[in-house]
């Protein structure tokens, strides 16, 4: 969606917080949020629905909340959506009918889960690839509703295919709970194509783009 999350190329956000933002965590609740999120709390969702959920936040909140504050808010939405907790239970911070507690896991166990969590998003190719490495390609001017991974700044631009990755799950469908593969490419764009003549002529920006985002240039 053409939401507030699509930040690439937007101006006015000021300097990067290089020194003040060096640490991954500033507060204990951020650590708790990270640990919670690792545990796969909403088994029926997809990673694309999680990302789309963040995009659906109230725009002002998206811009002003910190990263883990966004996550906490999104997980509450995901809980309500999936029926894990009602809006009243979220407001109360407790459920009306608790389930048996989960068994605690050790650090060694979760480290093994990290290794097992090396997820493969590729799928078997069901059609021939439309583009080959070296081909020129142009991106569409519109994204797909409700979810796309084609950023606004790279729409309607011409680039060069520099890698083909076979087929990967298409996020546009994943956000709808569907598992559909499509050819995925890395496309390189010259900085002047994206940002105009003042950009450094040797600089490039590369994006991973699915076949349905592209037409021959």
């Amino acid at each position: 969606m053409d939401g507030i999350h699509d930040l690439g190329g937007k101006e006015g956000h000021g300097p990067v917080p290089v020194a003040t933002g060096d640490a991954p965590f500033d507060y204990d609740w951020e650590r708790r949020m990270w640990g919670l999120a690792r545990a796969g709390l909403v088994p029926s969702m997809t990673i694309d629905w999680f990302r789309h959920g963040l995009e659906l936040m109230v725009p002002g909140d998206y811009l002003t909340y910190s990263y883990f504050q966004k996550w906490a808010t999104n997980y509450l939405m995901l809980f309500a959506d999936a029926g894990i907790a009602t809006l009243d239970e979220i407001a109360a911070g407790h459920v009306d009918d608790p389930a048996p507690p989960a068994a605690p896991e050790t650090t060694a166990q979760v480290i093994e889960q990290v290794r097992a969590g090396c997820t493969d998003f590729s799928t078997a190719a069901e059609s021939a690839a439309r583009f080959a490495v070296g081909d020129a390609a142009r991106t569409l001017k519109q994204g797909t509703a409700p979810h796309t991974r084609l950023p606004g700044y790279a729409r309607g631009r011409s680039g060069t295919i520099i890698a083909h990755h076979g087929c990967h799950l298409l996020p546009d469908q994943g956000a709808r709970g569907r598992h559909v593969g499509e050819h995925l490419y890395t496309v390189s764009f010259g900085a002047p194509e994206l940002w105009g003549a003042d950009a450094h002529p040797a600089d490039t920006v590369t994006l991973e783009l699915w076949e349905s985002y592209l037409v021959p240039a």
């Binding site: 040797a202 920006v205 783009l209």
Partner: peptide
């Protein structure tokens, strides 16, 4: 030259 990799997929 600078090449910026925008991680738009699972790569």
């Amino acid at each position: 030259a600078v090449r910026v990799w925008d991680s738009t997929a699972e790569l």
